[in-house]
């Protein structure tokens, strides 16, 4: 089943957008090509398309305001978002017809490029909204982050307790593995799902990506264990680190998926604001030098 913002009110806004595109095309092609001007933003049809585009941009930007006004009676946010998606896509056509594919190194093309970037980031946003929640739910297997972190805390407490039973060297390695575990980090690290965890073996901290270094270290100690108790301890620790590995993977993937779902807004919103101001410059500059 399609999510509601796509199929809202039986694709009402899809039809509205298609109607808008058809009307814009008709307006565009009604421009005489043999007249005083080629098809462009300066004919009355061009001005009409431009006004339509500007109104669309302003209205599309208002979604951010509408989302925050919980008491608004102006339609449901779902409906607004559905219209936002379809009319935003239609804007791409309207604005392109307005400029008639005339580009240059000027403020007008700047506004156009910003608009394209906003729409493209929006398309990405729509894609992740449609594609990622399923992966996110599958990854978390019904657990929320709080539960997972409680589980991690529990495992780590058990590991600490177990490590205290080993010799000083072992407990130093294990403690450092816990302490130097990293889940988050920079945005880039989160989005790439990079694991910057380290572990201190001896005097140097080595890469402990996916807990593999500490697991390898523990495994290498098993054959060298002089007493049975030590071997049992190592086995228990290996078991715990195995569980920890799975848990960390899940948390990291969770962070990555949610990062991918959030990142586009860090472009979409500032670019929208930039677009609004570029639009003002575009309109004003046309009339300053009329």
């Amino acid at each position: 089943m399609l999510p509601n913002i796509v199929s809202y009110a039986r694709f009402r806004y899809l039809w509205l957008a298609l109607l808008l595109i058809a009307a814009s095309m008709a307006l565009y092609f009604s421009q005489a090509t043999d007249g005083a001007q080629p098809r462009n933003g300066g004919t009355w049809q061009g001005y009409t398309l431009g006004t339509l585009g500007a109104l669309l941009i302003v209205w599309l930007s208002l979604l951010g305001v509408r989302k925050r006004s919980y008491r608004s009676a102006m339609g449901r946010v779902q409906g607004w978002t559905s219209a936002h998606v379809y009319l935003g896509l239609a804007l791409l056509v309207v604005a392109t017809l307005h400029c008639a594919l005339q580009f240059g190194l000027n403020v007008h093309t700047l506004a156009y490029v910003l608009m394209c970037l906003v729409v493209l980031s929006g398309i990405y946003g729509l894609y992740v909204y449609l594609a990622l929640p399923g992966s996110l739910a599958a990854n978390n297997a019904g657990r929320d982050i709080a539960a997972s972190s409680r589980e991690l805390e529990d495992i780590d407490r058990q590991i600490s307790r177990l490590a205290a039973r080993g010799d000083a060297d072992l407990s130093a390695v294990v403690d450092s593995a816990l302490e130097l575990t990293r889940l988050g980090g920079t945005t880039w690290t989160v989005l790439r799902g990079r694991d910057r965890s380290r572990v201190r073996v001896g005097s140097t901290a080595v890469d402990n990506r996916d807990q593999s270094a500490v697991i390898a270290h523990l495994a290498s100690r098993v054959p060298r264990a002089s007493r049975r108790r030590e071997a049992e301890l190592l086995n228990e620790l290996l078991d715990m680190f195995g569980r920890r590995q799975v848990l960390l993977r899940r948390l990291r993937r969770d962070a990555r998926l949610r990062g991918l779902m959030q990142i586009w807004l860090f472009f979409h919103i500032p670019l929208t604001v930039a677009l609004l101001f570029a639009l003002v410059v575009h309109v004003l500059s046309v009339f300053i030098y009329w």
Binding site: S149, D156, L183, T186, D254, G259, F266
Partner: peptide, 14 residues
């Protein structure tokens, strides 16, 4: 651990 999970929970903020 709470620092770790807080980081995860907070999400990205480039």
């Amino acid at each position: 651990i709470s620092v770790l999970t807080a980081e995860v929970q907070r999400g990205i903020r480039p």
